[in-house]
């Protein structure tokens, strides 16, 4: 048996290859974690991270008791739950359907077009929403008016914010998200289908009793894993969609951190970092809990 030192030396070249990536991780991931201590301090640029004065949980206390706290947490969670629930069935249905299509050109065309919006950038996506939903010139309102309805200021009404966010997201990514289900479907043993056909099962029965049970475990695992990132919303998209009229329903933790820390003139670095850290810690606990859950579900579905 080798001693650790010898075993390290034996593969020193592998460590040499790893040096740059590890340096990157330390500098750009772990140093900011060290820097997160400013959440417990009153950070001033002059004193720096280390020498700023400790203030304990002052900033956390201020956040939790702030007027905005309840609203921000509710918005973050609601937006996520809405997104998960509404977004869940579409990729699944799309994959089940595509799996039965035998006409190649039809299948290829549907896949090509439904995957395409995935590559539209967030900025362009939101820009498209603004144009299409514009109260004066947008096509949606033009159509509404043509049918005798009143024009609606979609982006200016806080009631619509979450729905616009969620459904535009489904439009953009349902196609691409179905790829993983198609992969799961292609790994279903074809002899199951052959046996079912011989037994006289209809297509509908085969879909419900062979395909669906085949991909539900994948879907459940994905859903559970997504629950782990419950506090992460598509922050970049929310930020772009925000305007003074809809912040009541659109302010989420990440946009708040950004505004308090980097936009506001007051330079509340410590307060903002505290909110960020609050989110990171809760998010981390959620991921741990959810992984535990996924492990259990995984075993249950295996045996």
């Amino acid at each position: 048996m080798y001693r650790p030192l010898e075993r390290i030396f034996k593969v020193w070249q592998l460590y040499a290859l790893l040096a740059l990536p590890l340096l990157y991780l330390i500098v750009f991931k772990y140093v900011p974690m060290y820097g997160a201590q400013i959440a417990f301090k009153d950070f001033t640029v002059a004193k720096g991270i280390w020498d700023s004065d400790w203030v304990g949980l002052k900033h956390f206390d201020r956040f939790v008791h702030s007027y905005d706290f309840g609203k921000i947490m509710a918005n973050t969670l609601l937006l996520n739950v809405y997104n998960l629930i509404a977004g869940f069935p579409f990729p699944l249905i799309l994959a089940l359907g595509l799996n039965y299509v035998r006409v190649r050109w039809f299948k290829k065309t549907v896949q090509m077009v439904t995957y395409a919006p995935h590559f539209i950038s967030t900025v362009v996506m939101v820009g498209m929403l603004f144009e299409l939903l514009d109260p004066r010139n947008g096509i949606v309102n033009n159509l509404l008016q043509a049918f005798g309805f009143e024009a609606v200021n979609f982006m200016g009404n806080p009631e619509y914010f979450k729905s616009i966010y969620v459904w535009s997201g489904i439009w953009q990514s349902a196609g691409f998200n179905c790829i993983i289900f198609l992969a799961a479907l292609s790994s279903i043993d074809p002899s199951l289908h052959e046996a079912a056909v011989i037994d006289g099962a209809s297509q509908r029965q085969r879909m419900l009793h062979i395909d669906l049970p085949g991909i539900v475990p994948v879907a459940v695992i994905l859903l559970i894993l997504n629950m782990g990132s419950m506090l992460d919303v598509g922050f970049e998209k929310v930020l772009l969609m925000q305007n003074p009229l809809n912040t009541r329903t659109s302010e989420v933790i990440d946009t708040y951190v950004y505004k308090v820390g980097l936009v506001s003139q007051a330079m509340n670095y410590s307060y903002s970092a505290a909110i960020g850290l609050f989110k990171s810690v809760i998010g981390f606990l959620l991921i741990l809990a959810v992984n535990q859950l996924a492990r259990k579900t995984n075993q249950a579905s295996l045996w």
């Binding site: 991931k29 140093v31 970092a273 850290l277």
Partner: peptide, 8 residues
């Protein structure tokens, strides 16, 4: 799973 956050 864990990050220092935007500000740091």
């Amino acid at each position: 799973m864990f990050s220092g956050g935007l500000i740091p």
